[in-house]
């Protein structure tokens, strides 16, 4: 019994220590964003990596999310003879929740792993030590461009995901569910409020920060060797996904909590 409590205590303390280290790392990353030197070439490279190259996977996810949502809502609402609400639920569901969360999770999987693996490999092959000997702060060269790219590009991705997701719902509704396209679009526009989109974009920014920070942290703290890098990659994806879901709840409560 005492042993179990001790193990639980050790685990709790280790988790708190890890959270403390991540918080300090994140704070240093944020502060570094505001002080030179800046590396515009690296920032541009990361903007492309985060934004442009994530577009296909985010777009595809949003398209199917919108299509499935329309189908499911139609089945559900048919039980109450309220099929007419499908358009409203699709647009609100996509912009407030599904767009940002699916985009966040997809980018967490794609980018969280690649950031941790890249930085972890750089650590193993002494490239990070080499930066230090060239008087380049690895935090400014590797972390800051990724954080900036995450915070700026995720909202763009989510905006595009919102449009594609709503279009997915629209396509299913008019082709499979026999909605009139004019009525559907009118309902979509009437149901949508600015706060729905804005809250999604703010969430996206927070997710971008969370994913890039976790990716960089786990890359920097990876053990040496292929196994260490592999573990860092897994930890990065898991913690990024959890981070996305936690931030999602907190921001939803902030925007829409009573």
């Amino acid at each position: 019994m005492i042993r179990s409590v001790a193990t639980l205590g050790e685990y709790t303390l280790a988790s708190l220590r890890e959270m403390g280290r991540i918080s300090i790392f994140a704070a240093r990353g944020v502060v570094s964003c505001f002080f030179p030197p800046f590396f515009p070439g690296e920032i541009l490279k990361q903007l492309l990596a985060v934004g442009f190259y994530s577009l296909p996977i985010v777009g595809l996810t949003a398209l199917f999310a919108g299509m499935v949502l329309a189908l499911q809502m139609h089945v559900g609402f048919a039980r109450f003879n309220a099929e007419g609400a499908v358009a409203s639920v699709v647009v609100i569901g996509i912009t407030r929740e599904l767009g940002p969360v699916f985009a966040g999770l997809m980018v967490a999987g794609r980018l969280g792993s690649s950031i941790a693996a890249e930085i972890g490999s750089m650590k193993v092959s002494e490239q990070i030590d080499a930066l230090g000997t060239l008087l380049v702060d690895p935090l400014k060269f590797l972390v800051v461009p990724r954080i900036i790219a995450g915070v700026i590009m995720l909202p763009f991705l989510v905006l595009i995901a919102d449009i594609i997701g709503v279009m997915g719902g629209f396509l299913v509704s008019i082709t499979v569910l026999n909605f009139s396209s004019g009525t559907y679009l009118l309902q979509t526009v009437q149901s949508l409020q600015a706060i729905d989109v804005i809250s999604g974009l703010v969430k996206a920014s927070a997710f971008g920060f969370c994913i890039t920070t976790f990716g960089c942290y786990h890359g920097f703290s990876s053990d040496l060797g292929a196994r260490g890098v592999g573990r860092a990659t897994t930890s990065s994806v898991v913690s990024s996904c959890i981070g996305v879901l936690v931030f999602n709840y907190l921001l939803t409560a902030l925007f829409f909590g009573t």
Binding site: S121, M122, S125, E126, Q127, A130, T133, L134, L135
Partner: peptide, 28 residues
């Protein structure tokens, strides 16, 4: 005062050979 030739060379993967050398000079 120092320059080092690392065991595994530590060339930056994302840069060409020329960019690697230029990057070092540019910083200092």
């Amino acid at each position: 005062k120092f320059s080092i030739l690392f065991q595994g060379n530590a060339l930056f993967d994302s840069m060409t050979i020329l960019e690697n050398v230029e990057f070092g000079i540019r910083q200092l």
